[in-house]
Simulated assay, not measured.
Amino acid sequence: MKGSDILKHVDHTLLSPTATWPQIEELCEEALIYHTASICIPPSYVSRVHETFGASINICTVIGFPLGADTTEAKVWAAKQAVKNGASEIDAVVNLGDVKNGDFDKITEEIASLKKAVGKHILKIIIETCYLEDEEKIALCHAVTDGGADYIKTSTGFGSAGASHADVVLMRANVSKDVKVKAAGGIRTISDMKQYLSEGCDRLGCSAAVRLLKDKTDIEV
């Protein structure tokens, strides 16, 4: 596997609350040079990126981030606004209070509402695995499948831990074949990226991928 093969699965990410426009612009330029799957940025920068780079860059943004505790109505409005501003992909955080209350029907309904809001655009649901028991993760796999989301995603990167290989294997085994898996949070080595892809991930959310792979795009890693 060449470095370029990994980078095409990477959502090149900058979600720091203090991210500046020059940093976002640099992220975009790197994504264009190294052909990452997308950039993942705060909603406040979506419109400016779209105006600056147009259709040349695939924009992903986050909704209900990082806590997921917004109402469904607020998440739906934010998702629609993000798409209107130029986002093609939406990463929305599940309501962890609903998870701990065991209200998976409500979660499924929220996911369905979000998918309806974004339409043909990609919806990824972040379940924040670090706070969950395996039974809750499995129930969320079913909710994501039944709600019609395109991806299930491990983590925000702002929780107590990020992605784990065990969680990716569990998620891949419990979502339908139509739902893809994204690992995110704490992915800092090439070997980790390769292993996540081999375990069935279609996307990787990380900020370090370009730095690690930019000199290795044409060689086996």
Rank of each mutant, 00 (worst) to 15 (best):
residue 89 E to Y: 11
residue 101 N to P: 06
residue 56 S to N: 15
residue 107 I to H: 02
residue 111 I to K: 00
residue 112 A to F: 04
residue 74 A to E: 05
residue 138 I to R: 10
residue 54 G to T: 15
residue 84 K to V: 12
residue 111 I to V: 13
residue 74 A to Q: 02
residue 101 N to G: 06
residue 108 T to L: 06
residue 57 I to N: 09
residue 132 L to P: 07
residue 73 E to W: 06
residue 130 C to R: 09
residue 52 T to M: 14
residue 70 D to H: 09
residue 129 T to S: 12
residue 108 T to E: 06
residue 130 C to T: 13
residue 129 T to Y: 07
residue 98 D to N: 02
residue 120 K to L: 07
residue 78 A to S: 12
residue 114 L to I: 01
residue 80 K to S: 10
residue 129 T to N: 13
residue 127 I to Q: 04
residue 106 K to T: 02
residue 137 K to I: 12
residue 103 D to N: 14
residue 136 E to D: 00
residue 79 A to P: 02
residue 60 C to H: 03
residue 120 K to R: 12
residue 129 T to V: 14
residue 60 C to Y: 02
residue 88 S to K: 13
residue 81 Q to A: 15
residue 108 T to H: 00
residue 106 K to R: 07
residue 91 D to E: 14
residue 129 T to D: 09
residue 62 V to Q: 04
residue 65 F to A: 03
residue 125 I to L: 08
residue 112 A to W: 03
residue 124 K to C: 06
residue 115 K to L: 12
residue 94 V to F: 04
residue 130 C to K: 10
residue 118 V to M: 12
residue 83 V to P: 01
residue 74 A to T: 06
residue 70 D to W: 04
residue 129 T to A: 11
residue 110 E to H: 00
residue 74 A to C: 01
residue 101 N to L: 08
residue 100 K to Y: 05
residue 66 P to Q: 08
residue 69 A to C: 09
residue 72 T to D: 11
residue 107 I to F: 04
residue 79 A to G: 09
residue 56 S to P: 12
residue 58 N to H: 15
residue 118 V to C: 11
residue 111 I to F: 05
residue 128 E to N: 04
residue 115 K to Q: 13
residue 72 T to Y: 08
residue 71 T to A: 08
residue 53 F to M: 15
residue 100 K to D: 04
residue 74 A to N: 01
residue 63 I to G: 00
residue 134 D to G: 00
residue 74 A to D: 00
residue 56 S to D: 15
residue 60 C to L: 11
residue 67 L to R: 07
residue 136 E to I: 01
residue 78 A to P: 02
residue 112 A to M: 01
residue 133 E to T: 11
residue 95 N to V: 03
residue 82 A to Q: 11
residue 60 C to V: 09
residue 54 G to H: 15
residue 105 D to K: 07
residue 69 A to N: 09
residue 54 G to N: 14
residue 73 E to F: 08
residue 133 E to N: 11
